[in-house]
Design a protein around this nucleic acid. Structure first.
Lengths: 336, 336
DNA sequence: CGCGTTTACGTCGTTCGTAACGATA
DNA sequence: TATCGTTACGAACGACGTAAACGCG
């Protein structure tokens, strides 16, 4: 068994059992891949794939086990090369992040701009998806970082650092009656209008419904969308009152929209960053986290990353005061 | 980087940085090892060892990191070959167990006899040591199974199956006054004699002292030993009352010794078996556990081994009724 | 002078890519 | 017939082992 064989195996799997494209991806010849696969199967004394004629049809159950282990092997080999690059001071490598639309659109741009200036040689890759997709990506080590909000259950294998708190805001056109309302917003008032918010099964969706149900209210959700941009568009069209994340309200939105703080109405939500337990944290990765969460010192991040037990980890990050993020603070912006 | 290079690296480390003996252990030439090590260091761009003249003097800090990762790589490669052997139905391999004297001497012999009959081609290796040594061995994956009693804290990374309960017995020569005592034994009575028991910092030692302290007693411990055989010898010499594990009293001992149940006086102790979370459990390993702990069905063991979360694991093994093991039950033996 | 490592060198096995062939839809 | 995998073959590289040199205690 050689690392090459394992690499070829994984590449075949990742190319959908197509040996030819695996060969292309690896910049080598197709017969070479075929041969190595055969040798691996011969050495293990078992079929890793079922054949249909000459083509690979499916992965055998045993094959799946082997593939899973092979991925771990390659991951650790990756870790070794990461280590060596780190120690020799090379600031090259990749940083792959899976996150939600809200983070990618409203929070990360500033961070990423600063990061790419500091580390021009690091390749940055951004994946966007639902919590489930993000969990899948990071749990299978296809990405380095997951940045998301709400339920940590999907990410129980990871080391998770808290980044900031946010809350919800209600969004109405400037001409809307709520925009002139002086009294603080209540859930009951909100339930009197059709609502436009994030699709359920996304971050924090359950707390949205639960807040209303706790007061015996059953609001009409006129429309749901994956991201705040779409919600804003429909709010502008008068479809209803938007309920979005505080970070998603930006200064230009003030021209025709008004954001109404809904901080007390729904539970506060934490955005966190997670990464696999055994991943080697390159220094640029630590810096990325620090850029995203300045309240976490580089030293704290390093210490948390090398913590062995959950208790040790909690002691480091458990009682850090998190900043609360809103997008464009209307009052302060108006005062300026 | 190749698997060969990593294997050579680990072998060098395990041979105390002696390349020549590493070569012998690997049945290859010494210059070959040297060359591969150089290549690895060149590829990683760093020194893994500090040199003293031409010899290797010490492992660099970075080298330690690499070595740790390399071990993981090789471990997973081992797992792949284990899998393949398992699937092709070969009943060959090794089973390495680290345990205490009590288990090795009084519990395992019967199990191992049955096991070697069933699996003559499996190489069995038994390591004996203190709890700390056992923890070290299994945590560094130098052994497959740890079998021990008492504190699980040292073994928090492992999957741990409960095997049986045991308790302590007091041991006196037949001529001793306690041997004729009709009333049940008390701690106070016990504290009236010099005691002979296991050395402290061994399994269950703290609960021994604590039991006396809870009643404000401070017994004189005349002598401590690593194992029950030695304790028996000194009990026979009249050095004091022995306090040993219930399994350690065997029928032949009845000729000149009397065992007095001390079940209520000290807390009950559980013996358990632990193995690394990510280890491939060969079927002979499962059978071994079943032989040792017949109350755990093969199915239960398999399910527990593949449990992903601690909760899932606990649900399987949490509320199983464990047998209580004594060695030679005097009463029943006398009746027979 | 012995122990251990490195250097030098010849041999052998393996891998790799090209090219031709075979099977499948 | 197009796509995909296998077989065949020659060239090149790399690993291995022997033998000799080097450094250190």
């Amino acid at each position: 068994m050689t690392l090459k064989q394992l690499r070829y195996l994984i590449s075949i799997v990742d190319c959908g059992l197509n040996i030819t494209s695996a060969a292309e991806r690896l910049y080598t010849s197709q017969p070479g891949i075929s041969k190595q696969l055969k040798q691996l199967e011969a050495e293990l004394g078992m079929q890793l794939f079922t054949r249909k004629g000459k083509s690979l049809a499916a992965i055998t159950p045993a094959g799946n086990e082997v593939i899973e282990r092979a991925r771990r092997v390659l991951r650790e080999v990756e870790n070794i090369t990461s280590l060596s690059r780190e120690i020799t001071g090379e600031q090259t490598g990749t940083l792959t992040i899976a996150t939600t639309h809200t983070q990618a659109r409203y929070v990360l741009p500033a961070v990423i701009q600063a990061f790419t200036e500091r580390y021009p040689k690091v390749d940055l890759e951004l994946h966007q998806g639902t919590s489930e997709q993000i969990a899948e990506l990071v749990n299978t080590h296809q990405v380095d970082f997951a940045i998301a909000s709400g339920s940590r259950k999907l990410f129980s294998n990871l080391k998770v650092l808290p980044i900031y708190h946010w809350h919800r805001i209600a969004l109405v056109p400037k001409a809307h009656p709520l925009a002139r309302e002086k009294k603080p917003l209540t859930l009951k008032t909100l339930a009197g209008y059709p609502l436009v918010t994030y699709v359920f099964s996304l971050t924090g969706e359950s707390s949205f419904k639960q807040a209303f149900q706790a007061e015996g209210l059953d609001p009409r959700v006129a429309f749901t969308a994956r991201d705040a941009d779409i919600i804003k568009t429909y709010v502008r069209m008068g479809m209803g009152v938007g309920v979005i994340a505080s970070m998603a309200f930006e200064c230009p939105d003030q021209q025709d929209l008004k954001a109404i703080d809904a901080k007390g109405l729904f539970p506060q939500i934490t955005t966190w960053l997670g990464f696999p337990k055994d991943m080697v944290l390159r220094s640029y990765m630590v810096d990325f986290i620090h850029l995203l969460a300045p309240h976490l010192s580089v030293r704290t991040i390093r210490a948390a990353a090398s913590a062995e037990t959950p208790e040790e980890f909690e002691a480091l990050v458990g009682d850090i005061d998190l900043p609360v993020r809103g997008g464009c603070e209307e009052d302060s912006a108006a005062a300026a």
